[in-house]
Amino acid sequence: MQSLEAELETARSLAVSELADAIESIGFECTRCGACCKADDDDPHTATIFPDEIRDIQQTHEYDWRDVARPMPYGLDDGAGETFEWAIQTTGCGDCSFYVEKDGVGACSIHDDRPLICQTYPFSVALGGTSQPMGEAVDQAGMVRAHECEGLGRDISREEAEALAAALKERAIRELEEAIGVRDNYTGTTPDDGDIVVHDSEGAKQGDGTPVDR
């Protein structure tokens, strides 16, 4: 297995045109079904969001940190303990808190500022250290993986494919940079009973995004 640094160099060297070729060969058009924004059966919508993306949405839309993000739930016990990274905030029914629907047509209330993982769904890059949203891939072309989505297989213009490919490359780079930052900044922190500590690339934070006092 390659180191995260080696994977990062590979991500930086990816050719957008080749990623676009792969996206074109798979095909994609968003049908606005909202499936990627909703809870999956009993599992809440869970998508990684970077710390700076949280702040950008906060500032643009005047939200609090907790309005935008929640601690990644994996590894937590009744919402307490130690975890890594942030997930987009959800509603009481488990859907993305920014998802809106009218007459069966879905939309994003922060569409122009949505995180990279949302901009690039249903695709990911086949590199270690990058995420595979919504489960395992259902198709792959070159370095591009496609995940379950009813919009797959539809015609996509070259312009749209290249824009998606550029965002996909940026996301792969950012995910690996974040993973390296988490690794390098991690120091074991034992939360008090009922509390939570989130480790991201900037260090240890409380559930509201404020740094943990050491």
Rank of each mutant, 00 (worst) to 15 (best):
Q2G: 03
S3Y: 01
L4K: 06
E5P: 03
A6C: 08
E7H: 09
L8C: 12
E9V: 12
E9Y: 08
E9A: 14
T10C: 03
A11C: 02
R12F: 11
V16G: 04
A20N: 03
A20F: 10
D21E: 15
A22P: 12
E24H: 01
E24V: 04
E24D: 00
I26S: 04
E29F: 10
C30T: 04
R32K: 10
C33T: 08
C36T: 04
C36A: 02
K38N: 02
D40V: 04
P44I: 07
H45R: 03
A47I: 10
A47G: 01
A47W: 01
T48L: 06
T48H: 04
F50K: 06
P51S: 11
E53S: 09
I54G: 05
I54Q: 00
D64L: 12
D64C: 08
D67L: 02
R70E: 02
P71L: 08
Y74T: 11
G75Y: 02
L76H: 06
D78V: 02
G79C: 05
E82K: 11
E82Y: 10
E85A: 11
Q89A: 15
Q89F: 10
T90A: 07
T90M: 03
T91W: 06
T91Q: 08
C93H: 12
D95H: 09
C96Y: 07
C96R: 08
S97T: 13
F98V: 10
V100E: 15
E101H: 00
K102S: 15
G104A: 09
G104H: 05
G104F: 07
I110T: 08
I117G: 10
I117Q: 13
C118P: 03
T120V: 15
T120C: 15
T120A: 09
P122T: 06
P122A: 03
S124V: 02
S124T: 05
V125D: 00
V125C: 00
G128R: 13
G129M: 06
Q132I: 08
Q132D: 12
Q132R: 13
P133L: 04
G135Q: 06
E136F: 14
E136P: 06
V138C: 10
V138W: 04
V138Y: 03
D139H: 07
Q140F: 05
Q140C: 07
G142I: 01
V144P: 12
V144T: 09
A146N: 08
E148M: 05
G151F: 04
G153D: 07
G153N: 11
I156F: 09
R158Y: 09
R158Q: 12
A161M: 12
A161P: 10
A163G: 00
A165E: 11
L168K: 08
L168A: 14
K169E: 11
E170W: 05
R171C: 07
E175D: 00
E175R: 00
E178P: 06
A179M: 10
I180Y: 02
I180F: 01
G181E: 12
V182Y: 11
R183K: 13
D184K: 11
T187H: 15
G188D: 14
T189W: 05
P191H: 07
P191F: 05
P191R: 05
D192F: 03
D195K: 14
I196V: 14
S201T: 10
S201P: 07
E202S: 11
G203M: 07
A204N: 09
G207V: 00
G207N: 00
G209V: 09
G209M: 06
T210K: 12
D213M: 06
R214T: 13
